[in-house]
Design a protein around this nucleic acid. Structure first.
Lengths: 197, 197
DNA sequence: CACAACTATGCATTCTGTGCAATGTTTGCT
DNA sequence: AGCAAACATTGCACAGAATGCATAGTTGTG
């Protein structure tokens, strides 16, 4: 079950990114209002029908594909006996390492979210998917009874991470490796607030 | 600029709630898949066109209207010299007090989210609106420079609150007044996790 | 009452999203 | 290489979502 990279898989990934690039660049130049799936398909050099083979809807094309923890990371996390939260951050480090980050794309997304704020809720809806994965990890260690607590922690971490992504996207000097470090700093800020309770 | 309750306003609110009730009950009985705006309109006793006069889209009808802080609360918060986070929670208390909560409706939403998990991201996208309001409050006190920190805190609080709502919806013995108390307890759990850093 | 502001609705239209069937491409197997 | 299964692309048809516009009715106000 190793990761086999066939021609088909490579093309699929490439087409998927090309569609997202087309969607983002058109949304930025022409505005998200009035952007149609036909325009995106034309810009990406595919048919409208094929567009819908790749993405369930227009928003999904803007957001792009969701990353996932690989099995090794999940296994490592479950077996680790270190403290929970630092281990979660370590898992995130692995995730960011395996998924090759594209700063240019992140920059486009950030600019689009500034230009078309109506997309922000959609983006946060999609962030929920990452949060769910984090929550699943926590439950692996603490058990299903801790699901509610796990959700809460996962939300905080995923939002701190999303926050960090915007910083990283706009700072060419910032290394991808330091993303999780900055995320940790953001979480410490949050803890500072909660110390008021 | 007091709150005048004309016949028009009352009817509007009533129709809006009737539409949401129709949408929720149909989604629960027939399934969200295959639920059309025409069905909702028919069940609510209005035309499809009128449905779209009340809600921007089908999802918005399910979620219902978003609550807002009233001007007095905003003014009170800005002038208060108490610690930030407890004041935020106090503002939430006022918000929940003024918006008359409907446990039955919240219960329906909770059941629907369990039955149709594809709606969860949409719900979280809408929760962002409340979060934005909280963030605006924080910025009133700390200034625009603290926007990023404000967002982070607001996200944590709003998710803790959403969490509490689900508990409240399913526990008839729980008083609406205690919602913010439970939310505070949830935030303390979160702080406990973050103490691992 | 008279007039402005708002509401409901029908109709036409554009866009989204899905199912299906036909045709072509890639893969794995012998 | 040759073959069959799996997968990808596309066109077409169609149901549903959402908007603009015109019209007729209702409510608020002086």
């Amino acid at each position: 079950m190793a990761l086999k990279s066939t021609l088909r898989d490579r093309r699929r990934l490439q087409t998927s990114r090309e569609i997202q690039r087309a969607a983002l660049s058109l949304a930025l130049s022409q505005g998200y209002e009035g952007l149609t799936t036909e325009m995106i398909a034309a810009e990406a050099g595919i048919s409208q029908r094929t567009f819908f083979n790749y993405f369930l809807n227009k928003e999904a094309a803007i957001i792009g594909e969701t990353v996932s923890f690989d099995e090794e990371t999940v296994a490592w996390f479950r077996e680790s006996s270190g403290p929970l939260v630092p281990d979660l951050l370590q898992a995130l480090r692995r995730l960011l390492c395996s998924s090759d980050l594209d700063r240019g794309m992140s920059q486009l997304i950030d600019r689009l979210l500034n230009k078309a704020p109506e997309l922000v809720p959609i983006f946060y809806g999609s962030l929920k998917r990452l949060s769910d994965q984090l929550s699943d990890l926590v439950v692996l260690r603490l058990g299903q009874d801790a699901r509610a607590d796990a959700d809460l922690l996962a939300e905080a971490i995923s939002h701190a991470l999303a926050d960090t992504f915007r910083i990283w996207a706009n700072d060419d000097a910032m290394s991808p490796d330091s993303i999780v470090d900055v995320t940790t700093a953001r979480l410490l800020v949050l803890r500072g607030f909660l110390d008021q309770l």
